[in-house]
């Protein structure tokens, strides 16, 4: 159990190095483009150009440039945005990260609970109208674009029906830090959570249902039934437990990509200053240091989450433990 984990950790470090080198190459070592001009921004003064060149070592060999960039990103954390008048980039991300994390974690809880409930119920009543109804509901969830749903929800809860008893509790768009007011935090996020979760509930409940139906045809389910277990126990302890292996691996990927900026649309629609929105702004203003930092940040997150999923895998699937 320990060895596979350590090996996995080693791989993670290696992958992180690979990604950072790749991202660095894409942004700063592409031939024919002067990275100095890119960082300094359009129409920068020659003094600024000179300062940037010195600061980032663009007159020195590539490995040194890479080292300087990584140092500025992860050690001194003084990578600054020139497009945004010297704003430090890393603290900006660190301010955005809790917002995204709050948004995605809440949505994840909703989508895991709901999709497991829907998937299990649909599988238990396979081919009945309950099954069909739930799966159609899932399909609807998958087909609704999240920004459209967000806009409609905003229209209803912020404008049209805001003054009715039903939605008068809804705060204005934006984020309230948990440390400032836990209830404010909850109220500000509960609608974004649901909106972000809708599509994933659809996807996950359908996948889980299909997986469960396949598993319920397996030999070991027949054994479990022959033992005299109740249908509920067979479905949950044997069927669902086995299906969770796939479920968790999918979940890890989606969670990671959302935290790494994939919740952009939800963040923009609900005015949440998260990592996705930050990336969006950086792209809009071609703020290279900020883009670089957010990309690195999401890469780190995806890779770390992946390693976590693998650890969970080791925990969930004894067959993987031995292969390691």
């Amino acid at each position: 159990m320990i060895m596979p984990l350590l090996r996995r950790l080693g791989q993670t470090v290696f992958v992180l190095f690979g990604i950072s080198a790749l991202v660095f190459t894409v942004f700063f070592a592409t031939p024919g483009a002067d990275p100095t001009a890119r960082i300094a921004g359009r129409n920068a003064a020659p003094q600024t150009m000179e300062k940037v060149r010195k600061e980032y070592g663009f007159d020195r060999p590539l490995p040194v440039q890479y080292a300087i960039m990584m140092k500025k990103l992860f050690i001194t954390r003084d990578l600054a945005s020139y497009a945004n008048r010297g704003e430090l980039v890393v603290p900006e991300i660190m301010r955005a990260a809790p917002v995204t994390l709050s948004l995605v974690t809440g949505a994840a809880i909703i989508w895991v609970v709901l999709s497991i409930a829907m998937g299990v119920i649909a599988a238990a009543f396979k081919d009945s109208w309950i099954d069909r109804g739930l799966m159609i509901l899932g399909l609807v969830g998958i087909s609704i674009p999240v920004f459209w749903l967000g806009q409609v929800v905003n229209l209803i809860t912020q404008n049209r029906y805001h003054d009715t008893w039903l939605f008068s509790w809804v705060p204005g768009l934006g984020y309230v830090p948990f440390s400032q007011s836990p209830s404010g935090w909850f109220l500000a996020l509960v609608i974004p959570w649901c909106v972000l979760a809708v599509m994933f509930v659809g996807i996950y409940s359908r996948i889980l249902r299909a997986d469960l139906v396949a598993i319920m045809g397996e030999d070991f389910i027949r054994t479990a039934r022959a033992k005299g277990l109740s249908p509920t126990r067979v479905l949950l302890r044997h069927g669902l437990r086995t299906a969770l292996i796939t479920f968790v691996s999918l979940f890890g990927m989606d969670f990671a990509q959302l935290v790494g900026g994939g919740a952009l649309l939800t963040e923009v629609v609900f005015g949440l200053p998260g990592v996705g929105r930050l990336t969006y702004q950086a792209l809009n203003s071609l703020d290279l240091p900020l883009i670089m930092a957010t990309v690195m940040y999401s890469a780190v997150f995806v890779v770390l989450a992946n390693a976590l999923v693998d650890a969970a895998y080791l925990f969930l699937d004894p067959r993987v433990r031995d292969v390691g």
Partner: peptide, 21 residues
């Protein structure tokens, strides 16, 4: 209540007959 207690069954393929987890 009878299954597994009074009448028990074993199957052909022991490879797949146990829940793997």
């Amino acid at each position: 209540a009878l299954r597994g207690r009074e009448v028990a069954m074993i199957f052909q393929d022991p490879m797949t007959a146990f829940t793997p987890v």
